[in-house]
Computed example of a mutant assay.
Amino acid sequence: MRKKLLLSFIALQAWVLALGGSVFAEDPVVSITMGNGKEPVGASSLSLLLLITVLSLAPAILVLMTSFTRIVIVLGFVRTSLGTQQMPPNQVLIGLALFLTLFVMSPTLSQVNQQALQPYLKGEITQTDALAKAAVPMKEFMYKQTREKDLLLFMNYTKTEKPKTYQDIPITVLVPAFAMSELKTAFQMGFMIFIPFLVIDMVVASTLMAMGMMMLPPVMISLPFKILLFVLVDGWYLVVKSLLTSFQT
């Protein structure tokens, strides 16, 4: 009886394998069609595709075309100079940088909304005109924060003719030049933030060496003094004030 059951089970497995081999003998074909597959793709489908592309590029746009880069780098320098490891956490620094970016960019974003977004939503202008009008306030903001040296670097590389106004500068030239200028400005501000904390570290290290406590890590002693100094001078207020002032040109 057991032999018959075993033979029946083996036969069932062989039948399943044979059936599976016949079913999957050919590679499966997956096709994706837009619309009904018979008519050409409409403008609404292309607009949806373009919108998805823009949303996928939103993080890069946020980082490279706004004040976010400078703000988040300076806040990172503050934490590093204090030596508090992960305090404040990354989520707090990035959240603060995002809200400061919205605060700094609010006049520019307001112009984009009035000149491009609202007319487009009302159907007064086309999508192409809306993008062109939205680029004007963004170009104005980036041009004010971009160094001429950085701008000339990319213009000479692409052999772009000297524009009459900032509106004639291609966005592909202005964005990397703006990003380079933001990095340089952020590192300059970070260097100024490092100086007072570096002095504290040097004083503490010299004092410990003079007392013969060479085995005691100076960071353990200097950290409370750096935090105390930062709190007494209201460091976060000064850092945020410096960041906001740096965008007023």
Rank of each mutant, 00 (worst) to 15 (best):
M202S: 00
I227E: 02
L223Y: 01
A177Y: 09
T185V: 08
K241P: 02
F24W: 14
L244W: 03
A97G: 07
L152W: 11
V231L: 09
V136P: 06
M209F: 05
R2T: 14
I125D: 00
R147F: 01
I32D: 06
S8Y: 14
K241T: 14
P196Q: 00
T128V: 14
P218R: 00
A25P: 03
P28S: 01
L46V: 08
P218A: 07
I61A: 12
K144Y: 12
M209N: 15
L64I: 08
N90L: 07
E26S: 15
Q127A: 12
Y237I: 11
K139W: 01
L117D: 05
T245K: 09
V30I: 13
A177D: 02
I71Q: 14
V63S: 07
L131E: 05
Y166T: 03
A132W: 10
P107L: 12
M220I: 13
I227N: 05
V204L: 00
D234V: 05
F194M: 14
Y143D: 04
K3C: 08
A132Y: 08
S181C: 02
V104N: 07
K122R: 10
K38R: 10
Q188W: 06
G123H: 11
A60C: 02
L243H: 02
L223N: 04
D150V: 00
I73Q: 07
S47R: 13
Q145G: 06
L183Y: 10
A205L: 01
M220V: 13
M220L: 11
I61G: 08
L183V: 11
T101E: 00
L151H: 03
D27R: 13
